[in-house]
Design a protein around this nucleic acid. Sequence first.
DNA 1: GCCGGATATACTCACTTCGAGTATAAAAGG
DNA 2: CCTTTTATACTCGAAGTGAGTATATCCGGC
Lengths: 300, 300
Amino acid sequence: MTIGLAHAELIAVLSAVTGDEPRVMTVRSGDALPSGPFELGHRSLQAGLREWVGDQTGHPLGYLEQLYTFADRDRTHEDAEGRTISISYLGLVREQAAPGAGKPGWHGWYEYFPWEDHRGGTPEILTAITGRLQDWVAAEPARREHRRRRVDFAFGLDGAAWNEDLGLQRYELMYEAGLVTEAGCAPAKSFGRSMFADHRRILATGIARLRAKIKYRPVVFELMPESFTLSQLQHTVEALAGLTLHKPNFRRLIDQQELIEETGETTSETGGRPAKLFRYRHAVLEERALSGSKLPLSRN
Amino acid sequence: MTIGLAHAELIAVLSAVTGDEPRVMTVRSGDALPSGPFELGHRSLQAGLREWVGDQTGHPLGYLEQLYTFADRDRTHEDAEGRTISISYLGLVREQAAPGAGKPGWHGWYEYFPWEDHRGGTPEILTAITGRLQDWVAAEPARREHRRRRVDFAFGLDGAAWNEDLGLQRYELMYEAGLVTEAGCAPAKSFGRSMFADHRRILATGIARLRAKIKYRPVVFELMPESFTLSQLQHTVEALAGLTLHKPNFRRLIDQQELIEETGETTSETGGRPAKLFRYRHAVLEERALSGSKLPLSRN
DNA sequence: GCCGGATATACTCACTTCGAGTATAAAAGG
DNA sequence: CCTTTTATACTCGAAGTGAGTATATCCGGC
């Protein structure tokens, strides 16, 4: 009897922000997320992943959070002994790691999701995507209304505002509509760089989770160097959210939370007036909820 | 080679609200959460759980969401073949199910977490708990500051406000401090009814997740009958949050969201002036995020 | 040495949200 | 008929939030 027996696999979405660009650690030249079997020797899932990441990259893993567990039958690596259960994690590292034993590479988020970066205004690729989605909406009269509402909501059409947190819903809609190669779409007609199996979907899950999390928990600081300027902090948040923020309001928000303190030093590497350097106040609790912490959006 | 091989188990936190009291489905006379092996024949994890719940209770499962996956070595059911991976789910059912094949029973949340119900004001048991926690804080001088901050934050002490979402953090602190029998505490000195293995921790995870979720997604309606009064809706939310809400503001909030519509009928079963009956507008998207949807709290 | 460009920092204002309080309407029961 | 009870409706002020404007300090060029 092999009832309930299965292979256990860990998949990691490891992110860093370098040069105002959010990146993810990949293997196979950017075609897959790093993954490995969950071995018996590990103390727990988290410990197993931390150990494994430490071997792959020299850098320690700061924040680590479980994302989701998949076990659909159509997943790969299935064999006679059972099926594979994949447990995915989101991890944040402070800077781009040097290539380790497994030669991991770092690739920008928006290679895989070019429609998610709205820092330079609405990306042109979105018009092509929403056009193709309109065809999909119209294709099946019975579900048309439902599909229309889902598309409008996820992509901020018909009066709805663009919501950066809905990256997963957007990818899933595009998958359903057959706009990505993972869904069998021809490469010429697809959008964004694809990945092995469902790895791009897992990456979308991680991005969406992180975008939601930075609004109510101080996880951004896991991606920042020891000391930083307020502009650097803002650019990091903007890179993650794929949006530009209103500078005075961003500073007011950071002030109110009392999450950072001045180091006393300044840097003039930024071009204009020297900027004060700040550091994260490690005294504040990790668990601390940020009250009223929506992102100070700007409409431009 | 058995690397990566493990037993897969599903654990469910199934909740309903009956008579203004939140309940959870249990087995073993309330000592454990329902669980079962993940069988090969299941299409996916969700499908496996839905099928299994359908067999146990006659009622269909409305909302279903993954909670967390555990695989710590100190978990039970370990044997030579591998270790157990437990995937926990949160499910909402519309009303208390009749006993099925497995004779499941329903027990009130606050049997297990009596300190979490603040509808009748701050429960007296909390003073005993925080007193014992102060001892634990003082016990180890080196970690005193850190522990003090964690306790103050989780339990709303020293100026901090009580936050109903922090139920899991509160239980984990009590576990660390040895105030629950699961941590080896003597029953006479422990708080709340205990459960098998780590099931009470999983229940705390489910409660915390649901309390957080009702603020930004319309999941409450999964627990309501087809038509209901505004007071019934409010009492259900209050039961889940363990808090009393400000009636006029609650109604204003519901109005703004446009989630419900009048059925045109009224009921006079409530005692005083007849109340209008409402129904949930199924037209609105499940995915719809409620903008600015904090709970209208009242201080009394 | 002065000036303009660039970046950093600081202040103000109007609109909305949200907690809280008060007032009116409609039933049941003595 | 009046009281009790519950439902429904309106008002007010403090705080939060989006948006715009003003001042400070450095660099480089002329």
